[in-house]
């Protein structure tokens, strides 16, 4: 009996080792590295304390990228969740071609991001792209969608929503199928319309799913960068640059590892803050069965 805790630790050891090796140790290393200066051939790395963060704070590109990322999150998260819910409600009903419709909604999620980005690159191409060809019929042409700092973010947001909504739809669809049909019947008998039922019963019942999807969507808004490699490389003039891509640039294009480490630390802190606040503020409002 006294050796029970030994068995317990032995059982979680394999998972703990893998997690530590690939998650916890790198995090600690990164935070550690962010406190040291960049090493060069003539000057070795030395401890600079918050120096790297001060440099970051005075870097206008950093603030630009951070702002971009917040705009990207605000643009993609609510819209993709709302769209996912609407699509799930649509394909949850008994309609002809239900299976095909579900597949069609889910298809963007199955495409690799690189393929999707190439597809949308074609949509956005000036003059010969799909968007310009359609707009050309109305006399608008030659818009450089991805080349204009004003339009590049909305374009990326639209593509990301298209890509993510189908994925979140699957979660809503699964949740909808566990809803007992008597609840609608009971509400319907009491005089509730579809909308009242949705607002007063269905949506609150879906809150655990919404919570899960919301956390995933927010994390994704900070994690997705694949499309930037294909479509914009963060340009023009950093107008579409996002935190993760900026980290990549610092580390491998500018070869400034301490700056990249400092940026990573900021990103980690930001994500931790978001996760904690979501659990603290939203969890109380969620009804779990």
């Amino acid at each position: 009996m006294r050796k029970e805790w030994v068995t317990g630790y032995l059982l979680i050891l394999p998972a703990a080792v893998v997690l530590a090796a690939f998650t916890h140790v790198p995090i600690v290393r990164t935070v550690h590295d962010s406190l040291f200066s960049r090493a060069s051939a003539i000057r070795p790395s030395r401890f600079v304390g918050t120096g790297n963060f001060e440099t970051l704070a005075s870097d206008p590109v950093f603030w630009k990228v951070l702002g971009n990322n917040l705009a990207f999150a605000l643009g993609t998260v609510p819209v993709s969740i709302a769209l996912a819910l609407v699509m799930a409600l649509l394909v949850n009903r008994k309609i002809r071609g239900q299976g095909t419709l579900r597949l069609a909604y889910f298809l963007p999620t199955m495409l690799p991001m690189i393929a999707a980005a190439n597809l949308w690159l074609f949509f956005y191409t000036p003059d010969i792209g799909l968007l310009d060809q359609i707009l050309g019929a109305f006399g608008v042409s030659g818009t450089n969608w991805l080349g204009d700092p004003d339009t590049v973010m909305p374009c990326l947001i639209a593509m990301t929503v298209w890509k993510e909504a189908g994925f979140f739809m699957i979660f809503y669809l699964a949740a909808l199928q566990t809803q007992p049909p008597e609840l609608w019947e009971a509400a319907h008998l009491e005089g509730a319309s579809r909308w009242v039922y949705f607002r007063r019963v269905l949506f609150p019942m879906l809150m655990p799913t919404t919570m899960f999807v919301l956390i995933n969507a927010v994390l994704n808004a900070f994690k997705l960068v694949d499309h930037l490699f294909i479509m914009t490389k963060g340009g023009p003039n950093n107008a579409s640059n996002l935190l993760l891509y900026y980290i990549f640039e610092n580390a491998f294009a500018f070869n400034d590892m301490p700056a990249a480490a400092a940026l990573t630390t900021v990103l980690l802190a930001l994500l931790a803050l978001l996760a904690v606040s979501q659990f603290l503020f939203l969890d109380k409002r969620v009804h779990y069965r």
Binding site: P180, E182, L183, E185, A186, A187, L189, R200, V201, P204, M205, M207, H287, R289
Partner: peptide, 11 residues
């Protein structure tokens, strides 16, 4: 109507 499963709104 009273349903067999009661059909109460759990939230």
């Amino acid at each position: 109507m009273v349903f067999q499963s009661y059909a109460l709104f759990p939230h």
